[in-house]
């Protein structure tokens, strides 16, 4: 098997699937001006992820996802309880809770995880796109060697697109005018919780592969890149994904292969490169929109 199929394609697939999963749900967060919620979720789920790992004794997907979900729910409940008992603003409470959860996760990782795990704090921050590879069994197909992370990301991407397709009408009404939606929708609260749950699922699935910071970029950037051109919610999503996916691919190749053009052997951090390129594309896209408006 050549290096592209074994190393580059799995990493690219993971990055693109994470873009679809996070970007689709992120479109709603951006419309609701809640993209920083993604940052809070990405931090808060860490202790659960690590605890799941420790309890199951292996990097078992189910245990880690269950742990992450538990930690996410616990952080949301704790934030709500603190807000009910105090008069602190939401941003401050969020800051207190997500940093505490993240710190707990880091301590668990460093003290309990010991040396043998492939889950370490820097992979939590910067992702592990570089360590994904397809190891096809002797005589087996490429597909048989695809790592579990990629299947998980594929499931997250499908879930995110289905969520969007099924609830777009309600979510748009809620994002546009929350007061009106609270009267006209039967259970706006349930809709908000469903969005939070789906977003958390996408983030947890993407988290291990791309790291906590790229998750924030993947949530916010596709929608923000499309925002100056979009004329509808669906248009913002499809344009955002259509522009982001090639950027993600270009950034991955720049990180993995550009250094060798300059004669250095080590690749650059791919997740970081993707984040930089996606973020830079937002003001660039606004500039393009300004030029188009002037020409029109």
């Amino acid at each position: 098997m050549n290096a592209f199929l074994a190393i580059d394609l799995p990493a690219l697939l993971a990055a693109v699937l994470a873009t679809v999963a996070c970007g689709t749900l992120g479109n709603w967060l951006v419309l609701r001006k809640e993209s920083m919620t993604a940052d809070a979720i990405a931090h808060a789920v860490l202790p659960g992820l690590v605890a799941g790992y420790l309890v199951s004794g292996s990097r078992s997907m189910g245990a880690m996802l269950a742990g992450a979900a538990l930690a996410g729910v616990a952080s949301v409940l704790l934030s709500a309880a603190i807000r009910a008992r105090t008069r602190l603003e939401a941003g401050a409470v969020l800051g207190v809770v997500f940093t505490a959860f993240f710190a707990l996760g880091v301590v668990l990782l460093e003290t309990q995880g010991a040396r043998q795990i492939d889950l370490d704090p820097s992979c939590v921050l910067f992702g592990s796109l570089e360590t994904l590879f397809v190891a096809a069994p002797e005589g087996g197909s490429w597909l048989a060697g695809v790592p579990g992370e990629i299947w998980l990301l594929a499931a997250a991407a499908v879930l995110a697109l289905a969520f969007h397709a099924l609830l777009a009408k309600e979510l748009a009404a809620l994002a546009f005018d929350p007061l009106h939606a609270r009267l006209s929708l039967r259970s706006p609260r349930a809709l908000e919780r469903a969005l939070l749950a789906a977003t958390s699922a996408a983030i947890v699935a993407s988290f291990a592969a791309v790291g906590s910071i790229l998750v924030v970029a993947l949530v916010a950037c596709p929608a923000l890149i499309a925002a100056p051109h979009a004329r509808s919610v669906g248009g913002q999503l499809s344009l955002g994904l259509a522009l982001s996916i090639p950027l993600v691919g270009a950034a991955y190749f720049a990180a993995a292969h550009a250094p060798s053009l300059f004669g250095t052997a080590t690749a650059l951090n791919a997740a970081g490169m993707i984040a930089v390129l996606l973020v830079a594309a937002v003001p660039a896209s606004h500039g393009v929109a300004r030029v188009i408006r002037r020409l029109a």
Partner: peptide, 24 residues
């Protein structure tokens, strides 16, 4: 101040962009 970005979006962009550059 960019259209449809707002302070929430700007915070996310600055955070992810600079930390991403740091990772590289």
């Amino acid at each position: 101040r960019l259209r449809r970005v707002g302070s929430d979006g700007a915070t996310a962009l600055a955070l992810a962009g600079f930390f991403g550059l740091g990772a590289v």
